[in-house]
Design a protein around this nucleic acid. Structure first.
Lengths: 227, 227, 227, 227
DNA sequence: AATGAATGAGAGTTCATTCAT
DNA sequence: TATGAATGAACTCTCATTCAT
């Protein structure tokens, strides 16, 4: 999945695969222009001519590389979806335990949202433009979280009862915190936010060392103020 | 706020206030039809003619009572916004403490979402149609949660550090759980879900009785399976 | 079927039936303009804007009364189809016998084609635009001819063996003669042409009086030159 | 004219004559693909890209061998026109007399139509795409029929009065019978149909032997049922 | 000769909104 | 107040043709 980064052409546009280098460049230019256009205006207010103008190609060229307005949007959603995952994955993998992983996930997600504010206009709007993409994105994300939680439970890092409900709850928190502190305003300290949530999770689903009270001492510095 | 129930005309349509009983009925019919139409098709695919057809009035009559498509949508968002709040408020007020209040809030929200699946199509889509309404809705909701949390902290029910971040996290959890278990599928046991989350919150932000370990014994029966 | 004449609205536009007199006039104006536009340019070169310009209405008004370009065309084909039939029917009914009826049919058809040269552009092009209309028109026409022939056979005016093949043969003759002497050039004497064909039919399928040779003396004057 | 068969390049594409064997094959491949594409979709729905896809060549190659969409179509019409003529000519030449010749012409035309259903989509549509080709085809065909009839008249096989009107009538019959029993359905017995028409013509324009009644005994077996 | 990307004019269609009745 | 016809700007998409390689 490494080739799905920002500069590669995602696999689901395969239908109209460019056969020359020039074609590949054009297709990518259109996809990037579409991200900007949709991010700025939203799906319905965006226009194909706006996209091609940004991309610096003729109107008709759009249809050389994409079947329809819906089709670019779909391609864009899965592109974006893959990009967030790819962005947060390394930090999550590097985390020593499950609580730390969730903290890292939130922190990286906030960073990504701050850098790519279009993500909300694109992924959230897919609920109305292409519900399948929308469901796929969140279902996949939730599954990953759940799998991590279960792995953590096996390792004794989190309570045994974790499951789908916890996964959706964590995802919902992240999404809304990303909207509030990634898109609406960015002055707040991302690390502090991540600490606050990690602390809550550490007590809420973390396994407590006996006689130590609620705070998990394996996560020092996780007792911040209310922000 | 009692007059904001499903059968009353919300106050912000005041612009074109009906002077006769007949007019009042027509306006309400159009607003209800709009909720159905927007809920089924989303804002952009919905059409004024679809709304008036559902309402059983002539196309032109729409403009007797609303200024534009955007205007009905705005009216609808604030109507919906008020209705959820009104629906969950009593249960929250009746709760003995703050954790119980959040549990009740989630439970009632799930019930509301199951009964009014359009709510997501309407409130979520306002992000793209009328961002102000969208922000107002979630900002208000978060403020209410935060206020409750702070009150709970004063009463010693939850930790002192609660604040805006916790409020947004809780709201995000609720919204996504409502989407997953209120709209996407409804077979799951709502009470079990509420228990799971309440247990997590009880440990995560609840004040622990000393020497009692992580589980808050004031919330018996809150240790469900992973669902 | 009298109300299907040139100035009445044909029944198959029923979907978007005008509810006011004004609406009826507009719909008819568009249909007439469409006949002219299609007749002049053919289906594909004709444009909706050309039609509305001729009709003196706004572009959008077209879609108030017709669903699509195809839909007007279909309406027009059945309108035209009905109009030819209505034009030739009286003369056919008034004919004393079957051979005379076919002569009258051809004569009137030639007259109609000369007066409405668009008919070929419309009905013949339906083969490519709306094959169903095309088939329906010719199938119906052939059925009528066949029914007449069989009636004539019962009355002893034509040979007993007449059937579908004869009907299609006669229809084909008429259509091509109408093209050649109704549309391509109109200098030729229509009555003479009708006589020539009638004479051929009289001998070819007419019942001969015994001992009289090939020429049916009940149709005097039917022995014209070769034109 | 033997080189105008299905595998030779007709002479009127001379404009862009291939100089190599490879070029000749490509041009022919495109022409055959065009026949299939136009036959299946009709002129306007057919696309150049559809043609080149069928032919297995690149889009641009089309313009190496033809000037425009209209140009292939024109080439195709004259190709088809020649092919029908070539197909029916031998049987007509071999016929013992004029009535037999017309019978053979119809029979072979039915066979050709059944084998090449595209012929109608191509020749008939030329009325709307390239009226000149259309007129040329039918004018030529009618002239040939007329010439044959006059020759028959000289030989005393048909009445002296035959002329253009008869020729167009016969052509019209053939075309419509070909449509009905060659393209629309093919279950009917072609020989029976040819017999029916030949019998009608034998009496209708044939020269009767005195005292023999209407039926021309030189054409035994020509008194079939009504089909 | 052949390839396939690029072009852009042009078409059909939609629908929020206005207006006359 | 209610009706329903009329309006026209705006948009997506098509595809014959050209062009650079």
């Amino acid at each position: 999945m490494e080739e799905c980064g920002p500069d590669a052409t995602p696999p689901d546009v395969a239908d109209k695969t460019p056969r020359t280098e020039r074609g590949r460049r054009t297709q990518r230019a259109i996809l990037d222009a579409a991200a900007a256009e949709f991010g700025e205006h939203g799906f319905h207010e965006a226009s194909i001519s706006g996209i091609t103008r940004r991309a610096g190609v003729a109107l008709g060229s759009f249809y050389t590389w994409f079947d329809s307005k819906d089709a670019v949007f779909r391609a864009l959603v899965s592109d974006m979806s893959a990009r967030v995952r790819d962005h947060v994955a390394p930090a999550i993998r590097a985390a020593p335990d499950q609580i730390a992983a969730e903290r890292a996930g939130l922190l990286e997600f906030l960073a990504f949202a701050r850098a790519h504010k279009e993500i909300y206009r694109i992924i959230d709007e897919s609920e109305f433009v292409d519900p399948d993409s929308f469901r796929r994105h969140y279902a996949t994300t939730a599954e990953r979280i759940e799998a991590r939680l279960r792995r953590g439970a096996k390792r004794g890092e989190v309570i045994a009862e974790v499951g789908e409900v916890h996964a959706w709850a964590i995802m919902g928190m992240n999404v809304f915190l990303g909207l509030r502190y990634g898109v609406w305003s960015t002055e707040e300290d991302a690390a502090g936010i991540a600490d606050t949530i990690a602390a809550m999770l550490a007590r809420g689903i973390g396994v407590q060392e006996s006689g130590r009270g609620a705070t998990d001492k394996r996560h020092p510095g996780l007792e911040p103020g209310s922000r």
